[in-house]
Design a protein around this nucleic acid. Structure first.
Lengths: 327, 327
DNA sequence: GTGAAAGCGCTAACAC
DNA sequence: GTGTTAGCGCTTTCAC
């Protein structure tokens, strides 16, 4: 910038004015400055600008896995909102590792992002207290924060799972298996609760072997499913705790002779083209991201109301697999 | 940092040493400094650090759509490599808009990212010349740069499409429709060329109405497909130019009485569970991202060889839809 | 082992 | 309309 000013024979501030499109520069001077800028290939250094201004016009997003078909649209939606507000998105995947989440979040804070959207892997976010006190707006999505108060945008996992399981019960099932994610994950925990609630409301017992929370690793899901399908009293239906589990169960069930019903949490592409088409409890990840990002920017624009909780409903989409009768 | 120094009763530089884990601080002083740091909730401001050091330990990724099932794993792979090198990833979606690509790339440059991975939407990257001259390492993925020389990591779209179409021909098809992306996109163009090559090598004519390049909007794809399926000489097979087109064609073909063969470019989840299972020309987006990011960091570590081109092969995966005979 | 001073590139505040 | 000065928070240099 110094060089540009020297070359154009003007002061530093004049160049700054031109670069930032501020008023108060004569057309002639402006032209001379522009000419020097292109000649020198000058581009403003935003690090210096940020250092001076305090705001970075960037927000951070930390979630489990950018490539997961559930989170990818969420991420994209956050990006769109950020873009509409002239902000860049910096994101990272926590891989469901609390340590990695913290590392990422703190790295983003060191970059002085204006705000954070977090799908937490950790259940203790006290490490964020100094940041929030320092003015970093923070919104939690999909899962609540741990040990601190903050805005949160959630999906009603409990009600969704209860509705999905009740749907299977309504179609005659009595022995229903639940395979879901690790129960330390809030949504997984809520979905187990929803399963149990539906069973108990229908007066049905829940055999401990019918509930298999754990990793979404296909081998684990397959093993648990096969276990539940064997024995003298096999399950006649499954409720899958998320899209990864559903996809694996689709494969397992396709290998069976007898039909086994399936309802999955999360919708997924081509679910309607499988045979049978897969009944799901759908949520809208893009909407989730949009709500969270909107909330974040409202905070950045100075909204100072106490932390709020927004809960999105789920939608049961009956397609066939959830309406199969017990074998 | 000033405050921390004051509170601990030490100099600025000593705090800096502690924060950066540099040697030369007595254990006692270090403890005092650490205590002040936590008490004040201090976190180093990376903007200032970057301003001083010149390197940002962050790289930028610009691609078409973060949420596309093809690009999401690519993005994730780049992130993993960046993480292994201690760098953060800042990314943005160009939405296939050259203006937006440039805007994003320049915003990233203004942030002084150390390097860029770009899936270009534009066909003229001369706007990057000053940046590259200034030392920003740049790698293009999936599509080549326009009007400049730079590293590129591509997939052999031409050979892949040729193989896919030849596969359909080998199964008896003579009238094969091609529905792909906008031909200004390099990969789309190459795939059309591959289609034409396979047809001509088999001595088959290509009726102009059998080739439909355009947007991947489902309505457009459907309309073109239905047009090709009507008339006196309907096509008996389709080659789909990318995963979005394939998914739409799966839906269109499922509504038909007669079987129509299909081979799609790009693999996709559950392709093997559809009926018929979908034959694809697969590429490995994660591998593409990994190669590009590795190359980028090799450049950042000082590799100064001339721009290189790495081409990845495709793999034909026969599953059923591509082996259907002509009706 | 520790600290004081200079300066990274920019913008805010206030001259002129 | 335009320029000058100070300083954002850190690291580098060099002196103690």
């Amino acid at each position: 910038m110094k060089d540009v000013a020297a070359r154009a024979g003007v002061g530093l501030k004049t160049v700054s004015r031109v670069v930032n499109g501020e008023a108060g520069v004569s057309p002639d001077t402006e032209r001379r400055v522009q000419e020097s800028i292109t000649a020198l290939g000058f581009r403003r250094n935003d690090s210096a600008r940020i250092l001076r201004k305090g705001r970075t016009a960037s927000i951070g997003l930390v979630l489990e896995d950018l490539a997961d078909p559930f989170y990818a649209p969420l991420s994209r939606a956050v990006e769109e909102v950020a873009r509409a507000h002239g902000a860049l998105l910096i994101n990272g995947s926590s891989a469901e590792d609390p340590g990695r989440e913290q590392e990422l979040v703190l790295a983003l804070c060191a970059r002085r992002v204006d705000g954070l959207v977090i799908v937490p892997a950790s259940d203790d976010h006290r490490y964020l207290e100094p940041e929030i006190a320092a003015g970093v707006a923070t919104v939690f999505v999909d899962r609540p924060p741990g040990m601190i108060e903050a805005d949160q945008v959630l999906v009603d996992s409990f009600a969704g799972a209860r509705e999905g399981v009740a749907h299977l019960i309504a179609h005659g099932h009595r022995r229903i298996g639940f395979i879901g994610d690790l129960p330390r994950i809030h949504t997984a925990h809520e979905r187990i609760r929803g399963y149990e609630a539906a069973m108990s409301e229908a007066g049905l017992p829940v055999h401990p072997s019918w509930v298999a929370p754990g990793s979404t690793d296909p081998a684990r899901v397959r093993a648990d499913a096969e276990r539940m399908l064997g024995g003298p009293e096999p399950v006649t239906a499954f409720f899958a705790g998320n899209n990864r589990v559903t996809v694996t169960l689709v494969r397992v069930l396709a290998e069976l002779e007898r039909p086994v019903a399936l309802v999955g949490f999360d919708d997924f592409e081509l679910a309607d083209m499988l045979s049978p088409p897969v009944t799901v409890v759908a949520q809208d990840p893009a909407q989730l991201g949009r709500t969270a990002a909107d909330l974040l920017f409202r905070r950045l624009d100075g909204a100072h109301d106490p932390p709020c909780l927004k809960t999105h409903p789920t939608t049961l989409i009956a397609r066939g697999s959830g309406e199969l009768p017990p074998a």
